[in-house]
Write a protein that binds this DNA or RNA. Structure first.
Lengths: 338, 338
DNA sequence: CTGAAAGCGCTAACAT
DNA sequence: ATGTTAGCGCTTTCAG
């Protein structure tokens, strides 16, 4: 059986209170007893029980990580990598991440994840777009919350956000610099704040160069930002018979679909149509040609979310801190030859 | 504040013991009181505290999921998808997965993950190759263990294993059926049971066709089964100036590297050299030509591991049950034209 | 069929 | 500086 605090107390000839104080590094304990107790702890290979601690302190050392089903199941490892970054940072901080998914659409009768109901977590990280009803339900528990990649209005929450506006701006500027002027934009769910911001950045870049924004070469109503829909959007775009010389896809998944369509139609990338994506997922380099994109530091984002959460748990950060993570242009052959 | 069992007892006019019995579905409770109590539970939106429950029952409802660092950081989402499968199944079973990584190499002074030391889990799933010293440390805690994709000798553990032998056999047979006879095999860490079994399957297929096994076209000493090393292995293979007409890579990551090398050398796939991998990772279809492979049902494997764990926790399964998961040939253009 | 009471392992007043 | 003690919220004998 595992040793308990009593065993340590007995072995070290002190009270359990003293042991507890030593465990928690209380300063008002003499060096000798501290040493004595620590020796007993080491000798018995003692570790305090998480449950017991949790019961009395109300702290579990766990952080909930909530993702919608569709984000979780995306084939491109975008949110997965954010999770990995979070897990990595959590380990450093001696915390654990409990991951769970929720439905993408709220339905009546929906129950919150068990870990919030049963208080198995100290705080919750919400990643990507989350139904507002669920956010409201969650608000009733006074759990620290950190949003990731979802910019809901209001100021009473913390968030780690991607600099989507600048990303959109940079991507479009890059295409402009390579001499392209008829730049199409494709997306799904333009109401998503992240996508909207990318779109705004794109518009701003055009505006700066004095190029008139043309809604007719923008597709923003595909139903999900996946490969198929990228393929589909490219098809729709070219069916219109507009002369475009570049496509800026709101994410790499769609860009990959675009590339596939262009390859089928034997349209030269980037000479005839340049393509740029957004996210920088693993498989971009496998494409032919490799896909230019805007790198989003996914691992870091996960890490930042956990850091922020930890600060909030220690009351070192206000519950409304926002972190804006910069992005970076990655030039590959889908936009520049050589 | 969250309601406790006392609040329910008060509201329902019963003792807390009765409430507890109702929660745990004890049969010797009258339908009326049961109804009364359940109403109170619903009215107050009560959920028992995980910590309190854990403290007294010794059960946490959490399962540890242990992966080595390098597996975790692999760019191909293989183990990640097994994790997703586990998480998916866990949710069904009202369990939570705590993921953590451990070093790939054991070092003295290594401490087990906090969740085992602090008894935050009821059982542990070990995925991929795990240093034996760590396995031994873990054995001291009497936690149910399920191994995944790692076939350690002995019978005192449960495992979910991939049918690697048949996979290797199938892959090689497929190449043979397309008329290839000089089939190279490339791998890293041939001591890994999974890889060894793939190799054995390959050998068996050759033997069945009466083709003599040729060690000189097998490379089994690359240091890690990643893209770079696949590239490297292909290079080494072709430098030898042997006439080979197919390459069977021990996994897709290496196969992707092979494809890259062949493309650079302008060697036609599959006409001159056919290529087949193993795993069926997402990006296979993006390659040019798309990569034939052996599909490993990653999501299912994670799910099976959790199911098995749950059975063990409920004592419905012996602690030495082995599950062998079948694999499937996926024909794509890297081995067959048309 | 239900209740009283002990106790799981720990923390945090409060004493000394 | 250290010990005593009262719970934290629950399960589980044991009585009734």
């Amino acid at each position: 059986m595992n040793p308990t605090i009593k065993d340590i107390a007995k072995l070290a000839n002190v009270s359990i209170a003293t042991v507890s104080l030593v465990i928690n590094n209380n300063k008002r304990i003499s060096p000798e007893t501290k040493k004595k107790v620590n020796k007993a702890i080491k000798d018995l290979n003692y570790h305090p029980s998480g449950s017991a601690r949790g019961l009395v302190s109300g702290k579990t050392g766990n952080i909930g990580f909530i993702l919608t089903n569709d984000h979780f199941l995306r084939s491109e490892p975008f949110y997965t990598r954010i999770f990995l970054g979070a897990e990595f940072e959590a380990r450093e901080k001696q915390l654990y991440i409990l991951l769970t998914t929720i439905p993408s659409e709220y339905k009546k009768g929906y129950k919150l994840p068990r870990f919030v109901l049963e208080r198995n977590i100290d705080g919750v990280i919400l990643v990507g777009k989350i139904p507002s009803q669920i956010i409201n339900l969650l608000r009733k528990y006074d759990l620290p919350m950190v949003f990731v990649d979802y910019d809901i209005p209001g100021d009473e929450h913390s968030a780690v956000l991607i600099d989507n506006f600048n990303g959109g701006l940079t991507a479009a500027n890059h295409l402009l610099e390579t001499g392209k002027t008829k730049i199409a934009f494709i997306a799904a769910d333009i109401e998503h704040p992240s996508i909207k911001n990318r779109f705004e950045g794109y518009k701003k870049a055009l505006e700066d160069k004095g190029i008139k924004f043309d809604q007719s070469i923008c597709i923003t109503d595909e139903n999900y930002p996946a490969r198929d829909n990228g393929y589909n959007a490219a098809k729709r775009l070219l069916k219109k018979n507009k002369k475009i010389d570049a496509i800026f896809a709101c994410n790499d998944a769609m860009a990959i679909g675009v590339m596939q369509y262009l390859k089928e139609k034997e349209i030269k990338v980037p000479e005839e149509i340049a393509v740029i994506g957004f996210d920088d997922v693993e498989s971009d380099v496998l494409l032919d040609p490799p896909l230019s994109t805007i790198n989003v530091p996914k691992i870091e984002i996960g890490g930042e979310a956990v850091k922020l959460m930890e600060q909030m748990l220690k009351k070192k950060a206000h519950a409304n801190k926002k972190i804006l993570v910069p992005v970076e242009l990655i030039k590959r052959k889908s936009t520049v030859n050589e």
